[in-house]
Design a protein around this nucleic acid. Structure first.
Ligand code: MN
Ligand code: MN
Ligand code: ZN
Ligand code: ZN
Lengths: 143, 143
DNA sequence: AGATGATCAGTAATCGTTCCTGTTCGCGAG
DNA sequence: CTCGCGAACAGGAACGATTACTGATCATCT
């Protein structure tokens, strides 16, 4: 487990000045296990299975530093708590409006979109993200 | 004021079965006056100036039905309360990370993006919105 | 006038998230 | 090794946006 921790992640911790504590490791492991896009609460429940003493606030704090150093990414949908993603490459995630499942949409590129936004506004554009919602195949089948 | 109310809006109310009450009119007027992308709280404060008895909950309810019948649109940014927009045509809005100002980004089209999303996922895509953040010229100048 | 259903005001409750306080941890200097 | 110090933590309170509830009002129909 601890041995499997990516060199890159350790390096990012070193350079940021944050310490890679056992709680933060546990949050990372939970994100890996959950193999998806868990909420803070989801991560909290997984982490608590192995260490019942962790506090929810600690999970939020850990997710915050992990995001800050670029190891994970937070994604927001309007009708759901924030979801966290180990996949920090540019990609889209779609969320099912009925069951809440989030999954990745491969192969869609939108760098040109961001470029045309920059060209069309006097603002300094910091981020342009695409929020996608729909119905997963299972929920769509049910009606 | 009341005379200026769009024929289209009255028609949408008629067809939906909802009634166009004075409170809902006031919410619409506030949205027009605020000439921007106000939050529910913003709308509430404007409405209260003319009718101090309106309740915040009523404003939320009114915004809900106005959105439901397609007269306004709700837009979401992760670090801000929901903003409401009288402009229901397809367009982008950018929000300043420092001062919170929201303004429109004209001339950017992204229908093809939605198409390529549909082609790339087994989900039934309901909505694909672009969330744009940055720094307005004033805030960017300050540093 | 009386009944009915929608809407409303006022307020309590909810939920995700952040903040706060006292405690523990890890590490470097002595 | 022990002390001191700052970072991180557990636990729980507080927060802000939104929703839910409850009893009054209002418009409309009979
Ligand atoms: Mn993803
Ligand atoms: Mn707009
Ligand atoms: Zn589903
Ligand atoms: Zn600004």
């Amino acid at each position: 487990m601890g041995a499997t921790l990516e060199r890159d992640i350790r390096e990012r911790f070193r350079r940021s000045g944050y310490t890679l504590t056992s709680q933060r490791k546990a949050v990372l492991e939970a994100l890996g296990e959950s193999r998806g896009h868990p909420s803070a609460e989801d991560v909290y429940l997984l982490v608590k299975q192995k260490n019942p003493r962790v506090a929810l606030g600690t999970v939020y704090q850990a997710l915050g530093v992990l995001e800050e150093i670029g190891v994970i990414e937070a994604k927001h949908w309007s009708e759901s708590p924030t979801r966290y993603d180990l996949n920090v490459g540019p990609h889209l995630d779609i969320r099912c409006l009925r069951c809440g499942e989030v999954s990745e949409v491969p192969g869609v590129h939108f760098e040109n979109l961001e470029d045309s936004i920059r060209a069309a506004t006097p603002y300094e554009v910091t981020r342009a993200t695409v929020v996608v919602e729909g119905l997963c195949p299972a929920c769509h089948a049910e009606g």
